[in-house]
Computed example of a mutant assay.
Amino acid sequence: MNGRGMRGAVIGLVLAAALTGCGIRSTEVPTDFGPAPSRMPCVMSNSATLSSQSGDGVPVQVFLVCASQLVTVDRSVQIRTDKATADQVRIAQTLLDELATPPSDQEKQAGFVTDVRAGTTVTGPGDDDPDGTLRFSTPPEDLSAFALAQIVCTLADSAAADDHSVIMGGPAGTPLRRYECTQEVRSRPGTVAPPTQSVGS
């Protein structure tokens, strides 16, 4: 058999084996279908991170929304020094205001957004409230799912809370609840609400 005939026979055998299955399991071979779909990185460059931490303020972390998840972002803030307000309330109000601040250009380019709206104020516990209570001018139940998750996780992870949870309520006289920030909330803040527990005032 000449060289051309030999090649033809070999090709014929290979095709026959492929058509009949020949009892050999296929193996997974990486296949190049082109570049993967682009995704928002949710990570800022080192220069942008250093810029956000610059200044004479206090370094804090707040939770912003990126790719439908909660992701921490480093910020530098000025804590108010109002002597008539407890430290916990000052910290909570500062963090709330920071959450309501539109993301910087670098944060926007990385895909970060915030669902917290400006204008909400925080006060401390009323006469019959447990220590550590934070009362909001906007009741927590009136917040969007993303905004509530941002606030709960930011406060629960800060000096404004104890045991990684936070007691929150609306204006004086409204029910109080203890909110927790879990990994499930961070991963799916739009569909998984922070776990709550009723707190007697």
Results as ranks from 00 to 15, higher is better:
S45Y: 09
S45W: 11
T49I: 11
T49H: 10
T49L: 14
T49D: 13
T49G: 09
L50C: 11
L50Q: 15
S51W: 13
S51P: 06
S52W: 04
Q53Y: 01
S54E: 14
S54G: 12
G55D: 07
D56L: 10
G57N: 14
G57T: 13
G57I: 13
V58C: 08
V58Y: 11
P59M: 02
V60N: 03
V60P: 08
Q61W: 05
Q61P: 06
V62G: 02
F63G: 07
L64I: 00
V65L: 12
A67Q: 14
A67T: 13
A67G: 11
Q69P: 08
L70G: 06
L70R: 04
V71L: 12
T72W: 04
V73E: 07
D74S: 11
R75N: 05
R75K: 15
V77L: 01
Q78R: 06
Q78I: 00
I79W: 04
I79M: 07
I79E: 02
R80I: 01
T81C: 04
T81Y: 03
D82L: 01
D82Y: 01
D82E: 06
K83N: 08
K83M: 04
A84Y: 11
A84S: 15
T85C: 10
A86D: 13
D87M: 08
D87C: 02
D87W: 10
D87S: 09
Q88T: 05
Q88H: 12
V89H: 12
V89A: 11
R90W: 05
R90P: 12
I91Q: 15
I91F: 14
I91L: 15
A92M: 03
Q93S: 15
T94E: 00
T94I: 00
L95H: 05
L96S: 07
E98L: 05
E98W: 06
A100F: 01
A100L: 04
S104W: 05
S104N: 06
D105K: 14
Q106F: 09
Q106Y: 09
Q106V: 05
Q106I: 03
Q106M: 08
E107F: 06
E107D: 12
Q109D: 13
A110M: 08
G111A: 02
F112V: 02
F112W: 08
F112G: 05
F112A: 03
T114M: 06
V116N: 04
V116Q: 02
R117V: 09
R117Q: 13
R117Y: 07
A118H: 13
T120G: 02
T121G: 03
T121A: 04
T121P: 07
V122F: 08
T123I: 10
G124E: 01
P125H: 00
P125D: 03
G126Q: 05
G126C: 07
